[in-house]
Design a protein around this nucleic acid. Sequence first.
DNA 1: CTGGGGAGGGGGCCC
DNA 2: AGGGCCCCCTCCCCA
Length: 455
Amino acid sequence: MDIVTYHTRLLQQLDEQRKKDLFCDCHIMVEGQMFKAHRNLLFASSGYFKMLLSQSCKDMSKPTTATFDVFSADTFTAILDFVYSGKLPLSGQNVIEVMSAASYLQMTDVIRICKMFIKSSLDISEKDCYSSMSNSGRRHHSGHQSVCNASWEIGSYPLHESDDDISECIENGHSWTPYSSQTRSKESHCNEMTRAVATTVLDIPQLPNSTCSPDNLENTDSEAIDAVCDPDMSHGGHPTEETEAILNFLTASHHRGRRRSSYKSRAVQADQIYATMPTIMGVLGGWGEEVIPSMRFKCPFCSHMVKRKTDLKRHLRSHTGERPYPCKACGKRFTRMEHMRNHFRTIHEAGKLICRRCKRPVTDESGQVVQEGTRRFRLCNECVAEVGVNNFPIELDEYEDHPIILSGDEEKESPPWTFHREREMTEPQLIDDTSSDLVIHEVMDSDDDIKPIEC
DNA sequence: CTGGGGAGGGGGCCC
DNA sequence: AGGGCCCCCTCCCCA
């Protein structure tokens, strides 16, 4: 008998004792349901119980009793099963609450497993989408959407490794990895598809192979993939000027190495997390310290705590990758409306009263607003004269007919490239992202001319 | 290689 | 609860 088998059998023996209520010296009440367990195991498994039992160990004759109301009996059942078997029965429905309870109970192993479970879910969900694309062609097809949606479906947890697989890895004493050989194979295939999309559909120069390694798969522009998946973004299988502008942006983002993710799948996953988020994620109070009476909300993904649930929801976007606020001018998405607004003011409204070239302060009188694609910035008159760029001043009245105006209703799922004009737009178009020439438009940049974003 | 600046992301907190 | 502001930090680009 090897030592692993011995440990397993030992745990099995203790579990049998627990089920037969033999030598159980710790009673735990959860939602009115009584659980009995051995304090030795609880002490060894949980920081919470370690503290609790070390304080109550003076009287060993009486069973220790603990009561919890911050998680459900089902959740504690899962955790207790893990304590006695090393197997954590996780599902897409219970993982958040199990993680929250584990955080409360200071069970780092359980938290780590939950994190891997969630991370695997997110990663493989995206990979499934990419892989499904490869099966249905390279260009825009209406079928893509349904295939992608299937892999994002909340009810069908997209994890390839079953719960048993996870437990099995733990049971075998292996460090569990969310990537099986099967998924790695998918990643490789997916990376090829990403490159193919980048080089054909997106008309992006050949991406360096380094950006498509399994370790940094998320660095590939899955937003672009989504755009390709989205039938609303396509017109007869060919990218529109708007989509091309987005793709140009994505290309730039890609080469900047920004970490991006599928906003649609992220949003769905974020909604799932928010929907299942327990009211109380945790209680602040370090061990060995005085417990702070005020309740705080603990992030299930990290150690961060906040005072308000709203702040936690905002913080969770940093984990889920949800970016619900798209810039209507360039399609870039943000986690917060204020960030999107700041971006819009700075990038698209030339909000900084500084000459981009000489960095001197500039006013409407001493400078001009220069438009380069969807980007606007200011140059002082001296710099404009020095650079000698082509100047295409447009009459103020003409500009007022063609302002970049953001829609009043932020439609999260609408194509990010949407310019709403107060009047019918005529040629030449104001937006010219594909132009490499520096085009100067004399534009009014006051709030009266460019309406603020309404979300 | 390094420092400065721009842009973006995130936390705290007020309204 | 959401919006918004302020502040700080990090990352990236460029000179």
